[in-house]
Simulated assay, not measured.
Amino acid sequence: MGSIKIKNIKVFAYHGCLDEEGKIGSDYRVDLKVKGDLSLSAKTDALKDTIDYVHLNKIVKEEMAIRSKLLENVAERILNRVLDELLIVQKATVDVSKINPPIGGNVKMVTVRRSKSR
């Protein structure tokens, strides 16, 4: 089994429970790690036989564009799409982080980690 990791996907989105968060928006960071059998692609050197990180990035961007109150919700949607659309993926972990959340203090990031395995 091999893995593909995409770190630090930067997205501007409008997630949060506060009305202001839906109007002002915030910066987010998404890290995605997926695992699957990459032995065929190692032999064929063909994109169709591997986990396409461009497709992964597209899923992240599209799901982050849909407003959610909770980061758990958007993380779950990302995981569901990855597992549904990329059949070679057997396990996936996503971290969705809100940069500078509106909770006061010296908080740089709040992260929700969701993991699923088939």
Rank of each mutant, 00 (worst) to 15 (best):
I4R: 04
I6Y: 02
N8L: 04
H15T: 11
C17Q: 13
L18T: 14
D19C: 06
E21R: 04
I24F: 01
G25I: 04
S26P: 00
D27H: 12
D31G: 04
D31Q: 03
K33R: 15
D37A: 07
D37H: 05
K43H: 06
K43M: 10
T44Y: 04
D45T: 14
A46I: 11
A46V: 11
T50D: 05
T50H: 05
I51M: 03
I51W: 03
K58M: 12
K61T: 13
K61C: 07
E62I: 11
E63L: 04
R67F: 00
R67H: 09
L70G: 10
E72R: 08
N73R: 13
V74P: 01
E76C: 05
R77W: 01
L79M: 09
N80V: 14
R81T: 08
L83F: 06
L87G: 15
I88K: 08
Q90L: 12
K91P: 00
K91M: 14
V94G: 01
N100K: 15
P101Q: 08
P101M: 09
P101V: 13
P102G: 12
P102Y: 10
P102E: 12
N106L: 15
V107M: 07
M109I: 13
V112M: 06
V112G: 05
R113A: 13
R113S: 15
R113G: 05
S117F: 12
S117H: 15
